[in-house]
């Protein structure tokens, strides 16, 4: 998320603007100090459907009511109406039934929700859907579909038994795919270092390590 306020731009949301939007709903929960409540109340009053501009910060304020959000997912444009607080992960899972990416920690620690955003692996639980507008979103389903049901990395996962319960698997697949694309010559150490942001409870790391190296070097015999 951007750390500074950006000029008004329908496709980007500032951090401060976002937090203000949140304040409006947090206010009702009675969770804020009185001064902050007063500020939030002003913003809240302004924050009707769609976006409004707060004069002081010159930032675009969205929500809390649903707004139009356009996402480019696996090459297709999807038009949604979402509350601005909806994460990319929840937009995918709850609004588009793209349930490949999983919700495990919801706090950017486990990697189960990994998708590619403009080719870069991100935790989709920690990206707002509105932030992902204008970027190419690639999910585990898209990766399979673009490759006749299974991309090479996915075939390597199967051959190397890189999944047990499989709940961490889609996240690992996308993280591995990103390693493979960015570092097509990664050795074992480099590859594993890049996969440190994904957790597996069943303990399938041996298979995952073999799968990613297999995909990169074709070394472990899986096809």
């Amino acid at each position: 998320m951007s750390q500074t306020d950006r000029p008004q731009d329908a496709s980007s949301v500032s951090r401060r603007g976002f937090l203000r939007g949140m304040s409006a709903s947090a206010l009702a929960a009675g969770a804020l100090a009185p001064a902050a409540q007063a500020l939030a109340a002003t913003v809240g009053a302004n924050a009707g459907p769609g976006a409004t501009t707060s004069a002081k910060a010159a930032a675009t304020v969205f929500g809390p009511a649903p707004i139009a959000v356009n996402l480019t997912i696996n090459g297709k444009t999807r038009e949604l109406r979402l509350e601005p607080r909806v994460t990319l992960l929840d937009a995918l899972r709850n609004h588009l039934d793209l349930t490949g990416a999983k919700k495990v920690c919801d706090r950017a620690t486990c990697g189960a929700c990994t998708v590619l955003l403009d080719g870069k692996a991100v935790y989709s639980c920690t990206v707002l859907a509105v932030e992902a507008q204008g970027k190419a979103i690639e999910t585990v389903e898209g990766l399979a579909e673009a490759n006749n049901g299974a991309a090479p990395i996915q075939k390597c996962f199967v051959a190397n038994d890189a999944q047990q319960c499989g709940f961490c698997t889609p996240g690992f697949v996308m993280a591995c795919e990103s390693v493979r694309r960015r570092n097509p010559h990664a050795n074992r150490e480099q590859a594993l270092a890049e996969l440190g942001g994904n957790l597996c409870r069943c303990g399938t790391y041996h298979g995952v390590a073999n799968a990613v190296l297999d995909a990169i070097h074709g070394t472990t015999g899986g096809k």
Binding site: G100, E141, L143, A144, T169, P170
Partner: peptide
């Protein structure tokens, strides 16, 4: 395996 790593497996 193929369903799990393609995100098709429904939990």
């Amino acid at each position: 395996g193929p369903d799990k790593c393609a995100g098709r497996a429904k939990y």
